[in-house]
């Protein structure tokens, strides 16, 4: 009977575990690596993972409803190309172009929303379709190879300068993070997302606006994917069709690692943020590992390549762990009755 209570306790514990993981990562990379805990590198960790952070933040509400959005990475590609064209071909001011790009992202998310909430189709196949569609549009617009560069210094500063000693884009992540955190944990909207994730039918019986709120999560995910695209272009100084490739997986990994249940309902934003940080540190730390030689191979060069592989393994491990915990809890509660 205490089962759900202990799940909640576990969630809190989950975040403690993540903090420990992060601490171990930091110590490990500081010992094994070069210049890991320097102001410059810490700033880099965040600068280079800001886009993933944004995607993880907006993926959280989607997964809370029991859905998934595989299209955010591709949508970033489309948005990056749109932004590049707006600035370089149509000569728009980067700020105006950024606004329009976010709008395009929201429209892309709106397509997902219409198909998922409006037509009641399964999110995985819908967003798999738009995954292909958005990337395909980006490639079509650039004829597969064209890229846009040569943006103004003012715009490039967004991705490459500091404000108050913190990478400029991290301020944006912070603002988005606070908004999402507030929406999820302090509004009736956020509460309805959890209710939907636990049981869509039950939420409908309680008179909650199920379709509308599911739609909002996908539109929001699209808009923020557009924003992430702008930031990415600013950091790299180049807009290409392959922008954000594979980012959806990193975002999902961060969220699942952060203890948000892939089946919906349970989880919180702070967990997703910690999941993101743990992932970001891992990716950066591996590139910092000093030269040791084991069996004639340079450890550093291998380690540098490992981050993608580890991300995949980590995702499976996190999922399997969550399932095992659930089974254990179920067994315990079965014993009690």
């Amino acid at each position: 009977m205490k089962q759900t209570g202990s799940i909640k306790a576990l969630l809190v514990k989950h975040e403690m575990i993540l903090l420990w993981v992060i601490a171990v990562e930091v110590i490990l990379f500081q010992v094994l690596g070069q210049n890991f805990l320097t102001a410059g590198n810490v700033s880099n960790i965040f600068r280079h993972s800001a886009e993933i952070g944004l995607l993880a933040l907006v993926m959280t509400p989607v997964i809370l409803t029991g859905g998934i959005d595989l299209s955010v990475g591709s949508l970033m590609g489309l948005c990056a190309v749109v932004f590049g064209m707006l600035v370089k071909v149509y000569g728009l001011d980067p700020l105006v172009a950024a606004g329009l790009t976010v709008l395009v992202g929201a429209l892309g998310g709106g397509l997902n929303a219409g198909l998922v909430a409006g037509m009641g189709l399964r999110p995985l196949i819908v967003t798999l379709g738009t995954f292909s569609l958005f990337r395909g549009l980006a490639e079509a617009l650039t004829h597969g190879s064209k890229s846009y560069s040569g943006f103004s210094d003012g715009f490039l500063a967004l991705g490459n300068s500091d404000i108050l000693g913190v990478p400029a884009q991290i301020w944006i992540v912070l603002v988005v993070g606070i908004v999402i955190w507030f929406l999820v944990h302090h509004t009736t909207y956020g509460r309805s997302l959890r209710a939907i994730g636990y049981g869509e039918e039950g939420a409908r019986y309680a008179g909650l606006p199920v379709k509308r709120n599911i739609s909002i999560t996908y539109v929001m995910a699209g808009a923020v994917a557009g924003l992430a695209a702008v930031i990415l272009v600013s950091r790299l100084g180049e807009a290409r069709a392959n922008a954000g490739m594979g980012y959806e997986l990193l975002a999902i990994t961060a969220v699942v690692l952060g203890g948000v249940s892939i089946f919906g309902g349970a989880g919180n934003v702070s967990g997703a943020v910690l999941g993101w940080i743990a992932l970001a540190i891992l990716n950066n730390g591996l590139t910092r590992i000093s030269d040791y030689e084991i069996l004639g191979e340079k450890v550093s060069s291998v380690a540098r390549e490992l981050s993608g592989l580890l991300t995949g393994l980590l995702l499976i491990a996190a999922l399997a762990l969550a399932i095992c915990m659930k089974m254990l809890a179920a067994k315990r509660s079965a014993k009690q009755t």
Binding site: L115, M119, G129, F131, S132, G136, E139, A140
Partner: peptide
């Protein structure tokens, strides 16, 4: 130009899935 392949592929997936959705409804 052949650049539209992926986009068409995505669109076709969506159309097929939507057609199935309508059938079920």
């Amino acid at each position: 130009p052949p650049y539209w392949e992926k986009a068409i592929q995505g669109l076709v997936i969506l159309l097929a899935v939507a057609a199935d959705g309508i059938r079920i409804k």
